[in-house]
């Protein structure tokens, strides 16, 4: 068994980065490493949004994006489910009606379980209804049509969109704006960020969505994982700088190494 050429450097980099991440996570968990996250306005606004919906007696809508639990966008779905745990806890605390809409069938049972357990942990299992988590359609535009229908009929007061979004991002954000909902959105799909910035009150940009679970739960494992990302980023920034200098000087050793 051997590595496919073109992946050799990638695999070794993955091993080194994994060790670095797991080490920082371990040290943080053991209390030997203190992690403090900067304030993320979008995440802080979630409580405000749910509180406002409660005052108005209108529902809160949450979408974990339209990606599945496989493929390169899966981490965004998992990050969204982490935030959903927090949203469920807050909805239970304020007795706000929560509507979670789902596009991917594989995400449906996971979201149901997250919400059910969230209500159970908050001591309000009765709040979980069959229509709390709704599968709408696995067809992208049928899903968004369903969401817009819910917005119009139920006049949601808070619209939370965290996860991987594509063309439906603006439809959902503008639909939320039309019913006057306070909107918090976040995605790591770069091409959709401008739409969220234009149409929402708060936007989580790129990796901020991965910090959501850690930020909201203050769980040490997640905090350590977020801190480790910064170390990896510093290493990458250094290699970009060194690589740029080397290439400028006519030496492509680092470039060749990276594509090995």
């Amino acid at each position: 068994m051997e590595l496919v050429p073109g992946n050799i450097f990638g695999v070794w980099a993955m091993v080194v980065v994994s060790i670095c991440v797991l080490l920082v996570v371990y040290l943080t968990k053991e209390g030997k490493f203190l992690v403090k996250l900067r304030r993320i306005a979008g995440l802080e606004a979630i409580e405000e949004a749910i509180g406002r919906a409660t005052e108005m007696g209108k529902p809160v809508h949450f979408s974990p994006g339209i990606a599945d639990v496989t493929g390169d966008t899966a981490p965004q779905t998992f990050a969204a489910l982490e935030v959903l745990t927090y949203v469920t806890t807050l909805s239970a605390k304020y007795n706000a009606e929560l509507i979670v809409t789902i596009r991917m069938p594989n995400v449906f049972p996971l979201a149901q379980e997250v919400v059910r357990q969230g209500y159970l942990a908050a001591g309000k299992p009765d709040l979980f209804q069959e229509e709390t988590v709704r599968f709408l359609s696995s067809e992208q535009f049928a899903y968004i049509a369903g969401v817009l229908g819910i917005f119009t009929r139920q006049r949601v007061a808070a619209n939370l969109m965290i996860g991987a979004f594509w063309a439906e991002s603006l439809l959902m954000a503008e639909g939320g704006s039309q019913v006057g909902a306070i909107q918090v959105a976040g995605t790591a799909n770069m091409h959709q960020i401008p739409f969220f910035v234009a149409a929402c009150d708060y936007t989580l940009i790129g990796e901020e969505i991965y910090a959501g679970g850690a930020y909201l739960s203050q769980d040490k494992v997640r905090l350590g994982s977020i801190a480790s990302q910064d170390y990896v980023k510093f290493a990458l920034m250094a290699s970009i700088l060194v690589g740029a200098v080397m290439m400028t000087a006519g030496n492509d050793w680092l470039r060749v190494l990276f594509v090995k």
Binding site: A67, G71, D72, T73, A164, W166, A167
Partner: peptide, 11 residues
């Protein structure tokens, strides 16, 4: 038009 798309081919 989306996922999977051009970036999956690149990877």
């Amino acid at each position: 038009a989306g996922d999977p798309g051009y970036n999956a081919f690149i990877r």
